[in-house]
Design a protein around this nucleic acid. Sequence first.
DNA 1: TAACACGATGTAACCGGTTACAGACACCGG
DNA 2: CCGGTGTCTGTAACCGGTTACATCGTGTTA
Lengths: 329, 329
Amino acid sequence: MRPTIRDVARQAGVSIATVSRVLREHENVAADTRQRVHTAVAELQFTPSRLGRSLAERRHAANGIVFPDLSGPYYAEVVLGYESVAAELGRSVLILSTHGRAAAPAMVEEIADRCDGLVVMGRTVPDEVVERLSRRVPTVLLARPHIAGIDSVKADNTDTATALAEQVLDSGARHLVLVGDPGLSPDLSERWAGIERVASRVPDVRIEHRPTTTFDEAAGAGVARAMSGALPDAFVCGNDELALGVLGELRSHGVDVPGRVVVTGWDDIMAARYAGLTTVRQPMRGLGARAARMLDEIITGSRTEPRHDVLPTELVVRTSCGNSRKETS
Amino acid sequence: MRPTIRDVARQAGVSIATVSRVLREHENVAADTRQRVHTAVAELQFTPSRLGRSLAERRHAANGIVFPDLSGPYYAEVVLGYESVAAELGRSVLILSTHGRAAAPAMVEEIADRCDGLVVMGRTVPDEVVERLSRRVPTVLLARPHIAGIDSVKADNTDTATALAEQVLDSGARHLVLVGDPGLSPDLSERWAGIERVASRVPDVRIEHRPTTTFDEAAGAGVARAMSGALPDAFVCGNDELALGVLGELRSHGVDVPGRVVVTGWDDIMAARYAGLTTVRQPMRGLGARAARMLDEIITGSRTEPRHDVLPTELVVRTSCGNSRKETS
DNA sequence: TAACACGATGTAACCGGTTACAGACACCGG
DNA sequence: CCGGTGTCTGTAACCGGTTACATCGTGTTA
């Protein structure tokens, strides 16, 4: 059995209060008493129980983050950014991947009860769950639409969607297919809205939607295959994985990209560079890091007014749309 | 203030023991009493405190995983596999990225104190720390050399290193450069050993080492640049990121791959497919999942003998070494 | 009808820390 | 020599649950 503070107290011949004082580095402990306690701690190899301490202090010194899935570079990078700031602030990190599970709300409640603050990402649990949660524990939304009174961080979708739309239209494309279900990701509806706004100002533009149930390469390839009979001028995809799927399917059938069709993605994952994909770079780690700091502000109470941050994104033009020369940057 | 079990007891007109019994679904509680408790719970929106419960039950219902970094697809995938099994087993997941920080051992001890079991990956903390840890909490090593008495899982390095070496030598290469520091990753030394064993059986093979301090593309590009004056026949890289860096550098200088030089990686990350990189596929999620199950076996006590599992890996031949036709599988 | 078993419930002691409060003791000035 | 002040330390009451054990009332059996 692991030693407790009472064992240390007995060994040092003092009370548990004194042991606690020494460990918490309180003042007003005589030097020789402090020494005796330290010796006892060392002899017993005592480390205070995190549980006991948390219960008494009424804080966990841990934060949580909830995301739909960790596959694909996007979420992993966000979580990494989050973890690194949380660690710097002396907090452990709990993760929960909801993975489309029906039990997600219960799982989120469970994790909420283990930490002092929680970040909830995009497509994980419904708004009413988030609202209930946020009443119990400080909450920051990440890549999710605002909810009144709850902090949020997201990457810009609208401005860069505009730039992306211009790039696509500049390439001469008029028949655009938007790949990905905006119902599955709040980011997507903003992106599509931005693109449609630009498109509406140009004559003869035709926009078609192709929702997918997942956001992976297989889904992208499926869309491209289904349209192989009547190709549009452009596949504008909701993320890079979809776009890479489209691109792979087209290229394997000898379709000239960007000559015949242009393709764009979103996120700028590593593979996008190697595939020459035109896309939008998001500050993935920055999102996680910012969320961690905002959460800390709420937890420590250094800020009380809610904040809604939008981090800038950047259009990255490569060969798949609008840049004829080879590029690997 | 959040309601406690005593508030519920008062509201329902019963004792806290009865409330606990109802919540834990013990038998021997009268139906109407149970009903009253449930009503009180609902009215107060009571949820038991995880801390109080953990303290009394002396278990956390949480597991931890420690890894060096989450950047790059490898660790993210492993963590994902781990999380999904842990969630299935009803355990929350704590993550800790040591990130080369000097304070890593202390951080690991901290996280160890928050969970019922811990997975420690490759290059995070020294063996003596792991041994101390494993005396306190069930531990599984992942992608780390065995330590007597401590469970471990890893992907096969030796067999596939043999296959890879044969592939490289079959391509005609005789002057091989091994990129990546085996001191930084236990996996690497096994891979290099396997390759050198094969090479030693072929006449006139010359092997050179080029350690790098990191495992990213920049490091790979740096090595290729440094050798541009006197190119070897093959760059055999410790992971895909290094290989992609090498490949990018070579191609941007018009070096013919695989005509003039062949390049191989390890891991089979997504970008490898798009870059046509010959590499070795690791069951990344499988590693995480297996570790989670092994840990569960130790925690529940369903197994007491240590186990050392090795998961199979697979050589994936693409254009960068040994396969002339285009491939995107 | 008394003895007994058993089901339902409460009491209180844990789990392992923190900390308010009180007490003991030494030293000071009037 | 006495009251006041300040330092050091211990007692005990928390934090919020679980559970062994005691208690009480009822139905069953000899």
